[in-house]
Every structure is written in structure tokens, then in C-alpha cells.
């Protein structure tokens, strides 16, 4: 098994040498780890099969040949060899089928998950809904999922429009989000960290820019985060942010976006109540900074051509103020 691991990881490392946070070969979640074992095993086995076939091909092509034509014996010998190879094939595929079956069982959802999160994909961002509890109201966020480390988390997958696919390779294999259906997936991070994922089913113009971050943190940190997210948006402190709030509510922004605690209750765009606290905006497109927010709001269609947020005409002051407001929404 160790040798097998070296083969597969060697292949993976040829041009990489990195520690990707979006790679099936760098698993940090229980399901992904199970699958990685399977990948390594099957790849190694198949490599051996390929080498054997190639060795036989080479020998068949270049072996020394006697003058005389083949005899009865060699016919029989060929038949026996072919039959043996076939038998071996059957055994190997049976083995791989059984191994897959057990891995499938291992990555299945447990009877009861510690936490259930609803993920609704849309062109081209992810709406994340955390259900409320006695201690805390439910809330919505976008493109960023926080989960407690070491716990089974069930992600309910739905789609608002076309088919998308939720895939965070370092944590688990992918699962589609199909309109009219509801799927689910087990996530369980074994190590705190930020794991990147990306929509894997072609979903139109901006399929390429539909990333998602999963942030796995210690349960205490997670709870702190959840509580802060469930709160309404803060009132901005600075004068420009306050002006931004006014402008935001006056402009069409509020028709599409929700900022809890304000009059903005649109739902066709991401919930912005705590947008400033998210690491990236526009589904992993750029890091969240005041500058990137301004660039995005000024001209979303250049940064992410075809996405569903239109360019809203703003004066440069309005733009500055709104960006400041957005950034302040921690």
C-alpha cells in the first residue's frame, strides 16, 4: 500500500509540489480521505496491469523468432495464457468493485448529523442557509460555509435554476444540485483550515467563477461565528459608511440584496448582512477589500461577464460610500 501511495502521489506531484486546498490528493476530510485511499489503490493496481500488458506487447513484438511455423503446442499454450489473463482480469475487477462498494458505504451519510446546512446554488453563486435553534435565529450567507471541525455535517443541496455541482475536493467528492430534487452530502473536516471548492457541473456563462469556501474551525470558534452571523447588520460607525448605507437603500441594490435590520430584503442576490466578514466576493472571484468591493459594484459585468448583477449607475462618491458600507458589514 505504501508503494502504491508513492506511485499515485508521485504522479500528482510531478508538476505540483504544492499543498493545494482544492485537490483530491490532499484530503483533509474523512470522506475525501477514504476516497483517496481508494484512488491510490486502484491507480496502483491499474499501473501494474498496464505495465504487464506493455511488457507482453514488447515481448510479442520483438521476441526472437524461429524459422519454423507455430506448432499445436504453441496454440494450446496461447489459449491457456489468454484464459489465465482473462481469469486474472475477472478477479481484479471483482476486487475493485468490492473495494468501491465498501468505500461507498464509508462515505455515506450517518444516521444523524451534528449540523445540517442548506445550500442552494444559483447562476453563479451559492446561497447558504443555517437553520435556527432555540439559542439563535437562523441566518443566511453566501459562498462561504463554516463548519465545526471533527463533526459530521450534512449539506442539503438544492438548485434555484439549472444543475450545479458542489465539490470541495479536499473534503469530499462532489454531488449535483438538481432543480426539483434535493440531494445531500456528508462533510467532515478533520483539520481546521480553509478549503476551496468549485462548481463542477457546467451551468452557463460563469461556471468558471462559481467557487465556494468551506472554513472548518474549532467548534467554539464555529459557534462564535454562527452567533455573530445570526445578528442583524451593525449600524455603520464612520460617516462615509453611514452615507453608503443611505445610498445603498436608495439605489436598486436593495431590490436584490438583503441586509438584515434594514429595509433591504431582496433575495435574487447574496445576503449582504455580513458581507464584509467574508473572505471573498462574487463566489471566490476576488478577495474582499474595499477596493475590490468598489471595483465589483462599479462594474460587475467586466469582472464576471454575464453574471446576474447589473451595473448600477453611481457617482464616484456614492460608490466610495457604498463600498465603505459594504466593507463595514462585518
Amino acid at each position: 500500500m505504501k508503494a502504491a501511495r508513492v506511485v499515485a502521489l508521485g504522479l500528482g506531484a510531478i508538476a505540483c509540489g504544492c499543498s493545494g486546498n482544492q485537490s483530491a490528493l490532499h484530503p483533509y476530510g474523512a470522506p475525501a480521505i477514504h476516497v483517496e485511499h481508494l484512488i491510490v489503490g486502484i491507480v496502483a493496481l491499474c499501473t501494474v496491469v498496464w505495465v504487464l500488458v506493455m511488457a507482453t506487447l514488447g515481448a510479442a513484438l520483438w521476441r526472437r523468432r524461429q524459422k519454423k511455423v507455430e506448432t499445436e503446442i504453441s496454440q494450446q499454450w496461447l489459449t491457456m495464457t489468454v484464459t489465465a489473463a482473462l481469469a486474472l482480469t475477472v478477479i481484479l475487477i471483482a476486487g475493485m468493485t468490492i473495494a468501491s462498494f465498501y468505500t461507498t458505504r464509508a462515505i455515506g451519510l450517518p444516521a444523524k448529523a451534528a449540523l445540517t446546512i442548506t445550500l442552494k446554488a444559483q447562476q453563479w453563486w451559492w446561497q447558504v442557509t443555517y437553520a435556527g435553534s432555540a439559542a439563535m435565529p437562523g441566518f443566511q450567507t453566501a459562498n462561504e460555509i463554516h463548519i465545526p471541525v471533527g463533526q459530521d455535517v450534512q449539506i442539503l443541496l438544492e438548485s434555484a435554476d439549472v444543475i450545479h455541482s458542489f465539490w470541495v475536493p479536499s473534503l469530499a467528492g462532489k454531488q449535483d444540485l438538481v432543480p426539483g430534487r434535493s440531494n445531500s452530502l456528508l462533510l467532515r473536516a478533520e483539520k481546521p483550515g480553509v478549503y476551496r471548492g468549485q462548481c463542477a457541473e457546467f451551468c452557463g456563462l460563469q461556471h468558471s467563477h462559481m467557487a465556494v469556501l468551506v472554513i472548518a474551525e474549532a467548534p467554539a470558534d464555529y459557534t462564535r461565528w454562527a452567533v455573530s452571523q445570526s445578528a442583524d447588520a451593525i449600524m455603520p460607525a464612520g460617516p462615509d459608511a453611514a452615507a453608503g448605507r443611505t445610498a445603498f437603500l436608495a439605489k436598486p441594490c436593495a431590490a436584490c440584496h438583503t441586509v438584515r435590520g434594514t429595509a433591504a430584503t431582496g433575495t435574487s442576490g447574496p445576503d449582504l448582512t455580513h458581507v464584509g466578514s467574508r473572505q471573498t466576493i462574487a463566489a471566490g472571484l476576488v478577495e474582499t477589500t474595499r477596493g475590490s468591493l468598489a471595483a465589483w459594484i462599479a462594474d460587475p459585468q467586466t469582472l464576471k461577464p454575464g453574471n446576474n448583477m447589473p451595473m448600477v449607475p453611481l457617482t464616484s462618491f456614492e460608490l466610495q460610500d457604498i463600498s465603505a458600507y459594504m466593507e463595514s458589514l462585518k
Binding site: 477514504h34 491499474c46 506487447l57 455541482s165 463542477a200
Partner: peptide, 26 residues
């Protein structure tokens, strides 16, 4: 022979459900 056997073997790999959850659509 050289190429198809590789392709066939990767076919066997993606035929495995858990394996495929990682490589499907990639």
C-alpha cells in the same frame, strides 16, 4: 494498444462510484 489500455484503465477507475465523485466533470 499503448494508449487505449491507459484509457480503458482510467475508464475502470471512473466506473468506481467513490472514485468518480472526485473526478467526474474534471
Amino acid at each position: 494498444m499503448v494508449i487505449f489500455v491507459i484509457g480503458g484503465l482510467t475508464g475502470v477507475m471512473v466506473a468506481s462510484v467513490p472514485f468518480d465523485t472526485q473526478v467526474h466533470d474534471t
